[in-house]
Design a protein around this nucleic acid. Structure first.
Lengths: 156, 156
DNA sequence: ACATTTTTGACTAATATTGACCTTTATTAT
DNA sequence: ATAATAAAGGTCAATATTAGTCAAAAATGT
């Protein structure tokens, strides 16, 4: 641990607190003052070190009483599968391909029938009625977002 | 949690009372005095936190003996539910309103937490990254599609 | 040398707070 | 009854308070 740049210091500080707590809530400007850096460096640290793949969820609010909240989550046992799947999905995704992926997830008992049906509903043709240009593009985004969500669970 | 701002305090105060009551009636000036803020902040809280999407109806009267009344909407009657939902969902649907609706459906035990989280993932901001023009429009379509799907399940 | 990561800051966006002015309803005076 | 006044609540825009984005510059690694 001799990488003592400021970003690493901030990362270590936050992770140390997260060792004993499920989540932490900070004020960006306070952190920045404490570590004598510009506020946007806090965003940099969060974006590079507290990603969902690393098991962290980040929420924030602006305005008076604003905050940044970092929450530890449990990565699913099938996490690797999801990461792989997410990478496999192209920028464009047809309805039939989406259907096939969800069918597979259902057969593998990763999702219930009802969950699958809901996800399909969110990507169905009717959703994209008058914007068919972007249909497969947005569907791809939706599918990857579903898969990302399946890759972790919040700790109760 | 992080009640650093007055609006959250007022919101929590009102919701706490609404936990035990179907409705609550307040006087704007009294609230403002109690929380040491200007009267219009009460309107701000009501307009941002007690919307129809969040499951609340608001009535008020001016003049002597005036009041603001907040009423919890009861969605537990399945017949009325889907009709009510259709009405809530405009041609355009913001992420926050979508969140509020799903939260309500979860509270009413119509969907599981996991189903809600998946549906939210399908409508999250990241899905619409580079097509923000149509964001709220498509989100509205997705939500309607989810609701339609849920209404089938009911009668299966 | 070149590539990657970190640091910085100017600009942007979201949310909360405040206050001046407006509208509605009830009460009181004539 | 009608008019004037008082007693509510409503609206809207300015300002304040946060956090987010993005790209250039600096530092570091290979």
């Amino acid at each position: 641990m001799n990488n003592q740049n400021i970003s690493d210091l901030i990362e270590n500080y936050l992770k140390q607190i997260l060792d004993d707590n499920e989540k932490i809530e900070i004020r960006r400007i306070e952190m920045a003052n404490q570590f004598n850096c510009v506020p946007s460096q806090i965003n940099y640290v969060i974006n590079t070190r507290f990603t969902i793949q690393k098991g962290y969820l980040v929420e924030s609010k602006r305005g008076g009483g604003g905050y940044i909240r970092i929450i530890k989550v449990n990565l699913s046992d099938d996490n690797q599968l999801f990461v792989a799947l997410e990478r496999m999905i192209d920028e464009e995704l047809s309805f039939n391909d989406a259907l096939a992926i969800l069918q597979k997830l259902y057969e593998e008992k990763i999702i219930t029938k009802r969950e699958g049906n809901l996800m399909i509903a969110g990507m169905s043709k009717q959703v994209f009625q008058d914007i068919s240009d972007e249909e497969n593009h947005i569907r791809s985004r939706i599918m990857r977002s579903y898969i990302e969500r399946l890759s972790y669970e919040e700790t109760e």
